[in-house]
């Protein structure tokens, strides 16, 4: 049994215990509904704590993979440009990183630090990381079937819009719009997840009656 299933098993047992505790405590307090709600919300968040943990681990691994991919593509690009004589690598090594310079005979003088491109692309991915984080608040089934494919669509749309944006203010508006759509899609995924069992129950009741 993999660790996710094991944790989900414990989560279900803990949730049942919390439901019993909530029912007991709710009966003894002045605000039974509020106490029940708070306890159930607490159990839900605790259950997803493992999701956050594995998400962070996976994210670190993915960042390393991406960095390696960026470095590989940079290297390929440099080799291809170098073979055409478009760039030359500087003999001076600044802070341990090579300086790649366009050949002045081919183009105007522009230079870029070794890791600058990859650093830029990491900063650019910030909002997507937020999306990944929000996704892990959802149960696994609905995340994989409904949230993730739509999230990829949102990411694609955001990148296309950003490519067309000509000013910083427009980029900010695009980011705000992205966050708004992300929140709506999260709530919608929750709605789909909560409505499914409800409909199944109603159908089962109809069959019985």
């Amino acid at each position: 049994m993999d660790s996710y299933k094991r944790v989900m098993g414990w989560y279900m047992i803990a949730s049942l215990l919390v439901v019993f505790a909530a029912a007991t405590i709710a009966g003894m307090t002045k605000y039974p509904f509020m106490v029940t709600f708070l306890l159930l919300a607490g159990a839900f968040l605790l259950g997803n704590a493992y999701g956050f943990y594995s998400w962070e681990k996976r994210l670190r691994q993915r960042a390393l993979d991406e960095e390696a991919a960026v470095l590989r593509s940079q290297d390929q690009l440099f080799r291809s440009c170098n073979s055409r004589g478009a760039v030359k690598q500087s003999s001076n090594i600044a802070y341990g990183k090579p300086i790649i310079r366009l050949n002045p005979r081919v183009s105007s003088d522009k230079s870029v630090g070794g890791a600058e491109i990859s650093r830029k692309s990491f900063l650019f991915r910030g909002p997507e990381r937020v999306g990944d984080f929000i996704g892990y608040l959802l149960p696994r089934g609905i995340r994989e079937s409904a949230f993730n494919p739509y999230f990829e669509e949102l990411k694609e749309d955001r990148l296309e819009r950003r490519a067309k944006a000509k000013s910083a203010s427009l980029e900010i508006i695009i980011e705000i719009f992205f966050y708004f759509r992300l929140t709506v899609s999260f709530l919608d995924s929750l709605r789909v997840w909560l409505l499914n069992p409800l409909f199944k129950m109603i159908t089962a009741l109809k069959m019985l009656l």
Partner: peptide
């Protein structure tokens, strides 16, 4: 792609939210 199917559905006046469509 999912996006193309959703757009085609929209042109037939069938609108579904993103997550509901993928579900």
């Amino acid at each position: 792609s999912g996006r193309e199917v959703r757009e085609a559905l929209k042109s037939r006046k069938i609108s579904k939210s993103g997550p509901a469509f993928y579900q």
